[in-house]
Design a protein around this nucleic acid. Structure first.
Length: 212
DNA sequence: ATCCCGAGGG
DNA sequence: CCCTCTGGAT
C-alpha cells in the first residue's frame, strides 16, 4: 500500500464520522459561520451564532441593522469589525446580484467581500456537495508534517497537491478528517506524537528533534 | 508582508 | 505571559 493510502486508512480509522462542526441550518447561516471562523475556533463561532442566528433570521435582517449594532453583536469574536462590514456587504450583494440566495459557483462566492478561496471551498463542499479541499491552518499544518506538501508551499499549492494525491470522491471526507486530526491530535503547539499512529510518514520529529 | 482582533489553552 | 484559532484584503 502506498504512503497516501496508509494515511487515509489511518484517518478513516481515527475519525470515521468527521464532519463540519460549524452549526448551521441553511446556506446563509453556513456562509456567515464560515466567514466568522477566520482566525477563530469553531467553538467560539458556535457560541456566538447560537444567539446571532436567533436574532438574525433572514438576509434582510442583516441589511436592516446598523453596522455598529452588528459590530457589537459580533464583539465576542476576533476581527469583528472586518467581519461585520463584510457580512453586511455580502448580504447586500446576495440580495442585488444573486436573488437572495447563496450562489453555488466558486467565482460568485469569491466575489463576495470577506469570502476567499478557503471559505468558498467550504461552502461548496459542505452545502452544495461539490468536491473541494479547503486548506485552512489545520489542513496546511497536517499536510506539511505528513509530507503531502513541502514547508514552502502556499495554501493553494497544498490544495493542488492534495487534490492530485487523494481520490476525488474522498476529498470532502478527508478534508474533515484532516481538520479533526489537526484540531484534536496533531495540534500546532504540542502534538501528541507519542500516541500517534502516523509517526511513520511524519517529518515532525526530524524538524523538532526534542520538542514536545 | 502586514493588519485586523477576541477568547481559550498552556 | 505567549500562542493559536477552518482568513481575507491591502
Amino acid at each position: 500500500m502506498g504512503r497516501v493510502e496508509d494515511i487515509l486508512a489511518v484517518l478513516d480509522n481515527m475519525y470515521p464520522a468527521a464532519h463540519c462542526e460549524l452549526n448551521h441550518t441553511n446556506s446563509l447561516e453556513l456562509l456567515i459561520a464560515v466567514m466568522l471562523s477566520a482566525q477563530s475556533t469553531d467553538a467560539s463561532v458556535n457560541r456566538l451564532t447560537t444567539g446571532l442566528f436567533t436574532k438574525y433570521r433572514t438576509l434582510q435582517d442583516y441589511l436592516d441593522v446598523p453596522l455598529d449594532v452588528l459590530e457589537q453583536d459580533l464583539r465576542a469574536i476576533g476581527l469583528y469589525k472586518n467581519k461585520a462590514a463584510n457580512i453586511k456587504k455580502t448580504c447586500q450583494m446576495l440580495k442585488t446580484l444573486y436573488g437572495g440566495e447563496v450562489p453555488a459557483s466558486q467565482d460568485a462566492l469569491e466575489s463576495l467581500p470577506g469570502v476567499g478561496r478557503k471559505t468558498a471551498n467550504v461552502v461548496l463542499s459542505v452545502w452544495f456537495d461539490v468536491p473541494r479541499i479547503a486548506v485552512d491552518t489545520h489542513v496546511e499544518r497536517v499536510s506539511k508534517r505528513l509530507k503531502l506538501a513541502t514547508w514552502k508551499d502556499a495554501p493553494r499549492q497544498v490544495e493542488d497537491k492534495l487534490m492530485r494525491k487523494i481520490p476525488k470522491n474522498k476529498w470532502s471526507k478527508t478534508h474533515h478528517q484532516m481538520i479533526f486530526f489537526g484540531r484534536y491530535h496533531c495540534t500546532a503547539r504540542r502534538p501528541k506524537c507519542e500516541e500517534c499512529p502516523l509517526q511513520g510518514p511524519c517529518r515532525y520529529p526530524n524538524i523538532h528533534p526534542r520538542s514536545r
